[in-house]
Design a protein around this nucleic acid. Sequence first.
DNA 1: TTGCTCCTCACGTCACGTGAGGTGGC
DNA 2: TTGCTCCTCACGTCACGTGAGGTGGC
Lengths: 282, 282
Amino acid sequence: MLSIGEFAQATGLTVKALRHYDERGLLVPARTDPCSRHRAYGDAQILDAVLIRALRDADLPVESVRRALDGPVVARSELDTFHAEVTAARTAQDQALDAAHRLVAALRDPAPVEERDAPALHWAGLVARVAMDASDEDMTLAEEQANDACGAMYGRLVADGNPPCGAFWTSLGAASDDPETAELTLCWPLDRPADGDLAVDGWEIRTGTLPARRELVARWEHAEDDLTARGLPHPAFVALLAELVAREADGRDTGNGIAGVRQIVLGSDGGPAGIELAITLR
Amino acid sequence: MLSIGEFAQATGLTVKALRHYDERGLLVPARTDPCSRHRAYGDAQILDAVLIRALRDADLPVESVRRALDGPVVARSELDTFHAEVTAARTAQDQALDAAHRLVAALRDPAPVEERDAPALHWAGLVARVAMDASDEDMTLAEEQANDACGAMYGRLVADGNPPCGAFWTSLGAASDDPETAELTLCWPLDRPADGDLAVDGWEIRTGTLPARRELVARWEHAEDDLTARGLPHPAFVALLAELVAREADGRDTGNGIAGVRQIVLGSDGGPAGIELAITLR
DNA sequence: TTGCTCCTCACGTCACGTGAGGTGGC
DNA sequence: TTGCTCCTCACGTCACGTGAGGTGGC
């Protein structure tokens, strides 16, 4: 029989851990003095203790260790289960670390941001509604449908003799009736106001005129890659936010903030591919 | 200005987390209504929030995230520091998982254990004292010194006309005067009692006679490899412990337990290399 | 008698999550 | 007025570690 201190020495477990395992029922001493409550461990308990130590050193949860004490077959399966969890967690963490690195890089080398005067602009747009918690597949599907509809609207505008006169853009807002749904407006710029009867099957159409205004624009001249994946904000958006932070610190104009951000697709007019993010200053 | 709920939507942080970061001073709302205590966040705070989210998703501690908010240079260094910690922790966990796998394997395929009658045996041994918390280098040094001393004693015994008559063994105990020090006795078996004046420079000598007895023996017939490393018990010891557990469960003889375990080195007589661990049953 | 080990609370760790119970703004 | 969001405690998580304060055995 060994006292708790001797048993701790023999097994490499701490006295505190041994008391904890006693409470949890993992490793109950062979005897506990009913009067002094001193714990006494048998030699044969060293085996369980050594197994507990090995599994806990590997960070298996105590409940899993308890099951593993049932025998080597269970122990093996608990180890395998845990190993799979560890592998998955490491993969997720690696992705998160990678995303964090890319965000920090975007902060250190921000996309260029400039102020510019923008002329008044007529526009017509399709309204696409997307659930906030949409899956990637849903998003891809919605994107295809939206692309088709934009093509259809382009054709209509040309047929009406009022063809788009510049780069396509998108602006994002929450749906007024459901905060869980995002509302994307996919817009073409026009030389003159759109016809009142403009329609595309199955889509809500909106038209309007942007007044002449001063804009703050971030430009990202790279082909679309996976930089926006995994919930990371787009580098151009990061740059725009950083500019807003700087302007706020200096007390400069920040307009309405990011409420009315427009995403302008570059490259369709033969210029460099990429996107611009624009907000209105005044 | 965004309410806490809107800001949570915009950033992907939870409302609870945002309140937590406010308390901790990580991300204090641009304004807090002094009456209702409602929090209001500015658009520009989205940048900090997004960075916090990215770093917390990667599991950086909150204190580290706080420092990272100082700027991209600090953020980069916090990420690198954390990455180094993660790598070290993963390596340690991999080693622990490997050790646990080997222990479970030793439990599933235990080394053979047998009972045997052992004849009475005279012996002479050197006493080596090793601190419990000795480093690996210290252990290696002590092992070399002990090997030299054993060789010297072997020569003395031969010169005395009483040469060792079987396999060398080691037995382990705690030093009587210091529980932090282990006492290894390195023994040669002899045909007749050792001379009283047997001596090896700088070493304590002990002699005695093991009575005829019944032993429980676990045999491990493999060359010494790294299976005993990293604080894992030797597979033969695991087998011996498992046998003790089985015998205790059956109410069979377990002698004095592992108190008097002898480690016998096989192979010096031309037989298969390996070790035996023996305890006395009666 | 003096140390030494042992004992049992009770609280701290870490970054929030989970209610409970209540208040403010549209 | 009714929901809805927001608020502040207070406690739970996980596996022990860290004292505090006290008792038992050699």
